[in-house]
Design a protein around this nucleic acid. Sequence first.
DNA 1: CTGTTAGCGCATTCAG
DNA 2: CTGAATGCGCTAACAG
Lengths: 358, 358
Amino acid sequence: MAASTLTEVARLAGVSPATASRVLNGSARTPGPDIADRVRQAAESLGYIPNAQAQGLAKSSSGLIGLVVHDIADPYFSVIARGVQSAARMQNRMVLLATTGGAPADEKEAVAAFAARRADSIVIAGSRSSLSEDSEGNAQLAAELDRYCRNGGQVGVVGHPIVGATATEGYHVVAVPNRELAGELAGALAAIHTGAFAIIGGPAGLFTSDDRILGFQQGLAKAGRPAADILRRRFNREGGYEAGLELAERINAGGPASETGTTAPERLCIFAANDVMAIGAAAALRSEGLRIPRDVWIAGFDDIETLRDFRPALSTVRLPLEEIGRLATFSPGETDDDGLARAVSGHVTLRRSTEPAS
Amino acid sequence: MAASTLTEVARLAGVSPATASRVLNGSARTPGPDIADRVRQAAESLGYIPNAQAQGLAKSSSGLIGLVVHDIADPYFSVIARGVQSAARMQNRMVLLATTGGAPADEKEAVAAFAARRADSIVIAGSRSSLSEDSEGNAQLAAELDRYCRNGGQVGVVGHPIVGATATEGYHVVAVPNRELAGELAGALAAIHTGAFAIIGGPAGLFTSDDRILGFQQGLAKAGRPAADILRRRFNREGGYEAGLELAERINAGGPASETGTTAPERLCIFAANDVMAIGAAAALRSEGLRIPRDVWIAGFDDIETLRDFRPALSTVRLPLEEIGRLATFSPGETDDDGLARAVSGHVTLRRSTEPAS
DNA sequence: CTGTTAGCGCATTCAG
DNA sequence: CTGAATGCGCTAACAG
């Protein structure tokens, strides 16, 4: 008892399949008003649902948008996904989801799967890495994307270009000024903090993390401050927690370094390369008896909305994540140059976690 | 320059399309090892990617799983989505995402779209409502699902059956014992709290919310306590915030009700029907100068992982959300009776936000 | 074991 | 304005 087909509808309405097709789907203009009604009624009574696969085959276009994320349950990605979803809805298309955990090899798989399904555009939200162990995967990913674009696909990458991607047509990057914003944040903090800084980030080679770390260091340098120590852990809550434990130990041992000699230990200001790590670090610091902002400061990046009620409120950089998702969603016909390349900006947001008072 | 086809591969390898199909896709056994290699090389050199639409058309099955949620950025849904995604991966299929905001009419649309794409199973994660304004939408949704199941589709519904769904074959419900667990939570709280209770929940008619509220009241009754006041707002952070403001006002005005006469106001214990509302309420309470747990207690439901580092740690009921997502993902062949109907359980988790000490 | 034939359901040329 | 034919790319019965 399979779903009914266009042909059945046509037969019931006493017309040809072609005519039925014309009235039921967006052809130039619906044929004879009398006939049209008969067809529509037939469709209704049979509970006809067009077979999108067949339509896609015939038109070679699927109405699908592929979305690649590391982890859909990570609030960073889930908010971007909401943006993509909303863009998809406006274009009435549907989104296909793939999660990869960040491995380029898996991302290549995902892109291939999207290509197989003839998705007419792909959004890649996960940040790329330049680790040597990933270079082969990156190359394959780039090749796959290249081919996809050459076959007419649209690709929107969030944040950082794919390493080695050469496609021009249909390949777009939504630039996120991670470095600049991290620099601004560093400047803002340096203006109200006299002590040392430390940085918590993801593994070396993760672009998003590296950009933010670099930007922060540059901001520090511009403010005449020495470079901060960097702790690299996994780019998630657990990584933040581990780094937090380590820093707590250092602090409790009496200051960030012994270089300060016998001076009273200064309060440390920690910059975590994303909010989720910051929250993890904060949990670790507290578990070691340190209080924020009294004993230690901490700032994050992203301004994840789910975390806004966190206490003390987290200083961070607000990023328009949902907008980013929307902007990365290109529709088939688009030619990038609707103005300049699509870029977004963010906003340094200082809150309680880095507050001078007490 | 469209992607190359099976026919082209076959021609390049000097074989028939059928043979090429056999070696490249999972037929019984790959033909002659010599031939097989030639085909594989041809495919490789052409960068052949099978057209899933065509495959689907021919096999009438798509390898697609449809997932319906209210909002993919809500942590409750995004964790369920992760579970669905992981199940999909194991069965190597892909997930199609639809967000509906909870409107039954939109959910019906989503199901129809999935049916059009010939998704071989659908997971509906959003909670259903019995509001009269939704009854027509519910009926349509039920009808749509019915038809989908009759055509061989598998449906997994999280939490509460679809109102009016009659399909038996292929229609499954992953039961979540909301009422029982809320009752347990009430009991656990009643054992350590002597004051009044209040409940914050979603709009009347939202099953998940209603079940939890009812369960909590029953638990209270069983413990010999009077029924709690109920505040109904939107089932999200904002709704929680509004309710929190209202309760703060009552508390600051001197006790939950004037019935207590001139007795010193007792500390109120608030139960929010989900964690996200609880967090919103907590923010509101604090903004009105109340401290948790000193001045007021609060408990939630779900144990959202992103919120675990919230302070004070939130008492709640842990639900295995990712597992729920996995369990709701039925593959085409399945017959529900792999043991009993799939059910999950949760775990009352008391934390700092309802701690007696001080 | 391989090649040939015939659809899967639909959109879209072409005639009428 | 409508109907008849053709093909989208692939798989699955058949034949050879």
